[in-house]
Amino acid sequence: MDSIQIVLLAFVQGLTEFLPISSSGHLILTPLLFGYKLQDLSFDVAVHLGTLAAVLLYFRRDLIAMASAMLSGARGGGDPAQRKDARLGWMVVIATLPILVLGLPLKHVLEVLRTDDMLITVVIASTTIGFGLLLWYADVRGSRRLDEYAINWVAALFIGLFQAIAIIPGTSRSGITMTAGLFIGLTRHAASRFSFLLAIPTILLAGAVATNDLLAAPAAVDWSALAIGAGLSFAVAYTTIHLFLTFIERVSMLPFVLYRLLLGAVILWLVLL
């Protein structure tokens, strides 16, 4: 990988992981559009770890509060505020369960798709457009009255099932979980916060599976490329999270929907040329 490719892919991952526009789709499309060979799995793991570090740092106080409250609740203690934090923590755990069950079967689907450039390009275009329209519908039709503490176990499983679909490139993990959150009546800010919190166990699980695959098929590793990629994706992702949560209630999901529609249309046009 040359330096331009490293910087480009790290920036793309950091920017798109927490925006509802699909990081996996962009990581596959970017080398295809710029004429690069598809990057090794090790680089994808590195830039995902960078974004994981960003969300861990950004939500460090929330995570400490939830972990402390969950432990306090297990011991039979905790005030009302702690019980709210504990409940939110358990909802994140419950929402992670579907990916544990469906993740590996859907991963095999992804592996098949990645072997055919034309097929995966059409899939990315279709899911980019289709789930973009679904995001718009949820944003328009949702009541947007509830915060993330109102999520119950049924709603958590609902969001988790939506998240499992995001293994298909172009869907967007953050986009589909925000869509599910909006459908159940969360505000844009609450749906986004829960989506970002849910990213933590999800990226950890995906990283563990990917690392196992790397260990099973060892290859030469460019550690400097991985370090630069992880560091840059961390910085971009942290900034993206902050800006997104600051402005999402004011700007709505429409700009991201329009971007998805335009991107999907351009991809289909290029494929059909």
Score class of each variant (00 low, 15 high):
141 R>C: 13
156 A>R: 04
183 F>D: 03
83 R>G: 02
108 H>G: 13
115 T>P: 01
201 P>Y: 10
127 T>R: 05
200 I>P: 05
101 V>N: 07
151 I>F: 11
97 L>R: 00
112 V>E: 12
203 I>W: 06
152 N>E: 13
94 I>N: 07
141 R>M: 13
141 R>F: 13
161 L>A: 15
138 A>V: 07
134 L>Q: 06
157 L>Q: 04
114 R>P: 00
129 I>V: 15
158 F>Q: 01
161 L>F: 15
148 E>K: 13
176 I>E: 07
91 M>F: 12
126 S>K: 09
115 T>V: 09
188 R>H: 13
87 R>E: 11
139 D>S: 11
179 T>L: 00
102 L>D: 00
140 V>T: 14
159 I>V: 15
118 M>N: 11
171 T>M: 00
124 I>G: 01
145 R>I: 06
204 L>K: 07
148 E>G: 06
198 L>F: 12
197 L>H: 02
107 K>H: 14
197 L>R: 01
88 L>W: 00
158 F>G: 06
117 D>V: 15
123 V>R: 08
201 P>V: 09
175 G>L: 04
164 A>H: 04
109 V>W: 11
161 L>T: 13
156 A>W: 03
202 T>L: 10
121 T>K: 13
204 L>G: 11
118 M>W: 12
131 F>V: 09
103 G>P: 05
175 G>Y: 04
138 A>Q: 09
138 A>W: 01
129 I>M: 14
188 R>I: 12
177 T>C: 05
165 I>P: 08
109 V>I: 15
112 V>C: 00
200 I>W: 07
185 G>T: 06
145 R>T: 12
143 S>W: 09
120 I>F: 03
115 T>H: 13
186 L>R: 04
182 L>V: 10
200 I>A: 07
160 G>Q: 02
103 G>T: 08
